[in-house]
Amino acid sequence: MIHPHIADALKVPDLVRLTDDLVLLRFESMKVYSALAAVRRLLERGTVRPGQTLIDSSSGIYAYALALACHRYGTRCHIVASTTVDATTRAQLEILGATVEQVAPSRDLELDQKRRVRRVRELLAEHPDWHWMRQYHDDVHCLGYHEVADRIAAAFPGRALTVVGGVGSGASTGGLVDRLRASDPSVRLVGVQPFGSITFGSQDHHDPEAIIAGIGSSIVFDNVRHHLYDTLHWLDFTHAMSGSVALLREHAVFAGLSTGAGYLAATHEARCHPDRLHLVIGADTGHRYVDRVFARHAQALDPAALKPAEVTTPEEMTMPWSTMPWRRAACPPRWKEPAA
């Protein structure tokens, strides 16, 4: 197949068998699927027009995905970038035609996210013709994953399936599982979170190393549909790093930090449910984690020696790794707040 644009080639994930009951859904950059489908739908609806500026904030892979989608469909792109966006990513964004501004450095995820949202609002007031993509709140970002779900269903007909992935904005895990359950309601969803994320109640736990950008949040995301999740895992940075290093060492897969966290969680889930096939979402490659993760591979823990604390409520969770059955419950009212 000859693709009309590089984004159409990059979006397609590979299915890689790790063990008999563990498969990796490996993306080059996962949110390309989401951004392409979102921009295309918005253009079709007339919500945005060619040449218009699309704006959003991002901690990394969504910025790259949106810049690619804008390049593909002839719209402009402005990114309010997190402190976690590295020089390599920023250079690519700028060459693709995006304008980029980065918030002041902060080790605090809540402050970083609130600064970015505040800046987006300021820019929209200055440029009312710009369109805010709202990747965390507009469910148009879930559409792209329906095609991926159909591919998964075709690849594993009749298998009892569990999807394991970082929660983040909720679009990827939610979009996949919502589509899969339309034909098979027994599909399980295991969400992975960092400590410090408000989404499933770990905001009172501080990871001294760093919160894992991209799979957690300090603000409420409307695209997270809590009732889709069966089980939650919370992991600290060291455990996620150990999962990433183990994935490269054991399976030669060079993937990002959220994939390492998902791999560790899925390995545990597979031990508990050996009758099911576990599909781990690999959101991106490991290139932007070289210094913080892979250069420190000697510090990685042995995954075989790790196991989570099993808790029954968020209040019982403990670092460095906890797991809890969620049982497709709704979001508790006390966790809700106006959308950012």
Rank of each mutant, 00 (worst) to 15 (best):
G175S: 01
M133L: 14
E122N: 04
V140N: 07
D129C: 09
V140G: 01
E110N: 14
L143S: 08
V190R: 00
S186W: 08
D129I: 10
R181N: 04
W130L: 09
A155W: 06
V192L: 05
H137R: 00
V140Q: 04
L143E: 12
R134E: 14
L161T: 12
A154V: 04
T162P: 06
G175P: 05
S186G: 10
R151S: 14
G175V: 04
V164I: 11
R188G: 12
H137K: 01
W130Q: 06
P128C: 11
G166Q: 02
G144A: 13
L123E: 12
G196C: 12
H137G: 04
T162C: 08
L109Q: 13
S172N: 05
G170L: 03
W130C: 08
G174I: 05
C142G: 07
D178Y: 11
T173Q: 10
P128E: 09
D129V: 10
H146P: 05
P185E: 08
V117C: 08
V120E: 10
C142M: 13
W130E: 08
H127A: 06
L176D: 02
D184I: 04
H131A: 14
V177Q: 11
V148C: 07
A160L: 10
L109D: 13
E110A: 15
M133H: 06
S172M: 10
V177W: 05
L124P: 03
A171P: 01
P157S: 01
R181H: 05
V140K: 02
D108T: 09
R121H: 13
G158A: 09
Y145I: 03
